[in-house]
């Protein structure tokens, strides 16, 4: 196994580094499997707790500041050069729901495939070899951002954004919500997205010196409960 030494990601930017790579990566059409997952929204809809744009926004805000923040920090830390295998362990400890651990690894494996095609990198190859069943998706995302020559803050933005677009897209399909209203929800969340991304990137930089424990561990009990409820349903539209 290769030895990983912490290095700030931006100093290691690849020659083809391009800001637009972030747009490619964060595009909902990036083929990494996200379209089949609702991020807990399907269970929250069934529980009668997401019913329209207002409750969707509250759901997304809660998810963003909890699991979104954790994902953003893990991704930023991987971009910054922290050991991806230790980050993978940290992600496990921050994910008490086995269904969510399985989902995170499945999506990590799917992202690895797309990432290795788009931005081939020995670090992605090494992680894929060490975790053939998939590493946690945010860790893979962070290494992908690193391979694309982008920064930890970029990784945090991408992860934070994903944490709200999944439920938003799912809610459009599940409740036939007006897509303009849902886009307005996402637009209203953008200040929160910036705040969470900045917080995550800052934690990732601190983690370089102070260790993984300073990475956020914000949790949302209902998201964990939804994930296990959802996993038992015989009939559902989304994989999670």
């Amino acid at each position: 196994m290769p030895r990983w030494r912490p290095r700030p990601g931006h100093e290691q930017a690849a020659p083809r580094a391009s800001r637009a790579a972030l747009l490619v990566l964060a595009d909902g059409r990036f083929p990494a499997g996200g379209h089949a997952h609702s991020g807990g929204a399907e269970a929250a809809v069934k529980a009668g707790r997401i019913t329209g744009p207002g409750t969707l926004e509250a759901f997304c805000r809660g998810r963003l500041h909890t699991s979104g923040l954790v994902a953003a920090a893990l991704a930023a830390a991987a971009t910054a050069g922290l050991d991806p295998l230790l980050l993978d362990e940290a992600a496990d400890a921050r994910t008490p729901s086995p269904s969510l651990r399985t989902t995170a690894r499945k999506l990590g494996r799917q992202l690895t495939r797309a990432a290795r095609a788009a931005w081939p990198s020995p670090e992605l190859d090494a992680l894929a070899a060490a975790r053939p069943q998939g590493a946690h998706q945010p860790v893979v995302l962070g290494l992908t951002v690193r391979a694309a020559g982008l920064t930890p803050l970029d990784a945090a933005h991408a992860a934070a954004y994903e944490s709200v677009t999944g439920p938003a897209t799912a809610a459009v399909r599940l409740l036939s919500l007006d897509p303009f209203a849902v886009t307005a929800v996402l637009a209203r969340l953008t200040p929160d997205l910036d705040e969470v991304a900045a917080q995550a990137a800052e934690a990732a930089h601190r983690a370089l010196d102070e260790g993984m424990d300073v990475l956020p561990a914000a949790s949302a009990p209902l998201l964990d409960i939804y994930a296990e409820q959802h996993a038992t349903w015989p009939v559902r539209l989304f994989a999670s």
Partner: peptide, 25 residues
């Protein structure tokens, strides 16, 4: 020495979304 569980819960004023449908509802 390896992490087994790491959970942080934030509630009340200044914890965005805590009362919403993702956290406590």
């Amino acid at each position: 020495g390896r992490p087994l569980l790491d959970q942080e819960l934030s509630f009340g004023p200044n914890a965005p979304g805590w009362a919403g449908p993702a956290v406590l509802h």
